[in-house]
Structures are given as structure tokens and as C-alpha cells.
Computed example of a mutant assay.
Amino acid sequence: MSIIAPLAPAVGKPALIDPFQRAITYLRVSVTDRCDFRCTYCMAEDMEFLPKRDLLTLEELDRLSTAFIERGVRRLRLTGGEPLVRRNVMSLIRSLSRHLKSGLLDELTLTTNGSQLQRFAGELADCGVRRLNVSLDTLDPDKFRFITRRGDLSVVLAGIEAARAAGIKVKLNAVALKNFNEGELAFMMAWAHERGMDMTVIETMPLGEIDEDRTDRYLPLDLVRIRLAERFTLRDIPYKTGGPARYVEVAETGGRLGFITPMTHNFCESCNRVRVTCTGTLFMCLGQEDAADLRGAMRRSEGDEALHQAIDEAIGRKPKGHDFVIDRATKRPAVSRHMSVTGG
């Protein structure tokens, strides 16, 4: 069971504290495993998506998220797949925005590939979304189509501009990929900073079977930082957004660059996050298979007592950290599920 924190959330329910005394204040919820891209490091080309009947309804996603907010979660991120391809997803976002108005939630945000932002940016801003992460691994149209297998870079760039025009702060997320974008990361960073956007680079993670050998793409970020430091002045800063990125300020551009390093330097000691899949499975750690079925707990009764009990039991098992490995001897992924299932 989780330990009751001395300071309870505003609604009076006990806060969620894991066995290592880390408060769980950040929830990432996948609303769908579907995506309109098929990024080579994330998905197989011929993905088999979950039957729609297995997914939580929008009402269940709201109920589940609200239960966590009642227990002290202050930041809620909706993910996918691509969250904005979920039918009627804006009704969920609009409903969840009530927690921003009540003060129980500090931030409601999304991670998106940007393909639907032209359509939804204005409505997202109206719902109180003030910040978005847009996954973008290259600014070369041909390379973009190759890595996504079907994406149109111009559509994503127009979506980013639509979000910025709506007053939403955009941060770029780029997966560092050897022999693909390693020579482009400095340009992408400068491009983002010129437009007032932060950027984060991420090490590829061994999640799910894909159509290529991850060792051919794995690029450690300590090497990326060394190369950037040859051209730019990087100064470590304490800036945090609630996630695992460690940030530097780039003197020449005046912008911030984040590093997410699950492989070379994991960030487990300060982990304040849990993830729920679109089927209602709670993963206490991205890099571990242990999980809890929250869908069953919700569907057993109209009340939330069983749901809160299931959450308590799961948080009581949250591990200290993960042990990702990518090497030639370890061909199989560290975790069998794809990132699109867990939530990006």
C-alpha cells in the first residue's frame, strides 16, 4: 500500500507516495494507440492496433484522470499514439479543463506529432492548454517522410505555427538517431530557438518489436552534448517542466535545450510520474512490465472506491527505476509493448 503523505491534496484524499518517498504528481494518459504516422523507431510498418472495444471510453478516461487528480496529481499529459486522432477527443479535453479552473490541476497538456494542430490549436487554447510537446525528428521534408513513413512536414510546421498563433507554447521533442539526424540537431535547435521554442533531445528506448535493429540508430546523448559544446556555450540550469529532462541554456541562442537520457543517465531518482494506457493499464515505470488493471476496477462498480484501492496497491509497488539496455547481444526489446501502447 502507498504511504499517506502528511500533506493531503486539496480535496482531502491521501496523496500518492511511493515506497521511495517520491510524491506522484504527474500523470501521463494515453487516449489511443492509433497514430497517423508510423515512425520507424516507434512502430512496425504494419501495426496491429487494439480493438476499439478494449479502449477506455472518453468518460472512463475522465473518471480515471479525475481520481488521480483527487490524489494530488498536478500535471496531466494526454498522449497516444497520436491523441488528436481519437474521435471526439476535444470533449474529453474540455471536460478535464474544469480541474484547471478549480485549481486542482496546474497543467493540462499534450504530446502530439503536430499533424492535427491546424484543426485543433484554437480549441486547445480555449480549454486552457498552454503548452504542447511536438515530436519532430528532422526539418528535411524527404527525411521526415522516410522516418514517419507517411507524414508531410509542411502540415506539421503549419500546425506548430497555428499553436503558437493561438498562444500555446511549443517545445520540440527530437529523438537522436545515429546516421539520420545527428548532423541536424544543432540546426534544429537554432531553428527552434529563433522562434521562441525550447527543444529536447531524447535517446531512443528499447520498447516493442520494430522493423530495424535499434543499435543501428542508438545515439548516446553524452556524445550529442560533446558535439554541441564544440559550437555552442551550454550552461546547466535548474529549469524543470515536471518531466525528466535536464536543461541547459545556450548562450548563443538564448534558448533552452533539454536532454532526456533513459539509457546513459537514467532519471529515476526523482521520478514523480506514472502512465496509464488507453486500455486502463497503469504502468508505474516506463521500463518495467509490472502493471495494474484500472479498467477492471472502474467497471466493477459505479463508485471509485475499488479504483482508488487499485491505485494505492499499484503505487505501493512502484520500483526504484528501470534498466534499459541496447546492444548487439540484446536483440529483443527491454519491454515488449510499443511506445504507442504505453503512451509517448
Rank of each mutant, 00 (worst) to 15 (best):
C271M: 06
F232N: 08
R300E: 15
C285L: 11
T261K: 00
A292E: 14
T253S: 14
I311Y: 00
V250C: 08
L257N: 09
T281K: 13
N272K: 07
E230S: 13
E249Y: 03
A245D: 08
R246H: 14
I315C: 04
R273P: 00
M298E: 10
L294T: 08
D236K: 11
E230K: 13
D290Y: 05
R299M: 14
E289D: 13
R300S: 15
T253P: 08
A314S: 04
E269N: 09
N272F: 07
L282C: 07
D293R: 07
L307M: 04
F283A: 05
C285W: 04
R295G: 09
K240C: 10
F267I: 05
A297L: 11
G287E: 15
C271G: 05
L282T: 02
S270G: 06
G243E: 11
V248F: 12
G254L: 02
Y247I: 11
C285G: 14
E302A: 15
S301K: 12
N272R: 10
G287L: 12
E289F: 00
T277V: 03
L286F: 06
Y239E: 15
G280Q: 01
I260F: 00
M284Q: 09
G243V: 02
V274A: 12
C268G: 06
N272Y: 08
F232W: 15
M284E: 05
F259R: 02
Y239I: 13
P238W: 05
S301R: 14
G254N: 05
L307T: 03
R299H: 13
Q309H: 11
A292R: 05
N272I: 02
S301Y: 11
F232R: 04
L282Y: 02
T264L: 00
R317E: 07
L282H: 01
L257P: 06
M284T: 15
A310I: 12
G287T: 09
M263Y: 02
T261G: 00
A229Y: 03
F232L: 14
R235K: 11
G242V: 05
E249I: 09
D312I: 00
R256Y: 15
G254C: 04
A291F: 01
D312N: 13
L234I: 07
L257T: 11
E302C: 13
E305G: 03
G243P: 08
R317P: 06
G254D: 09
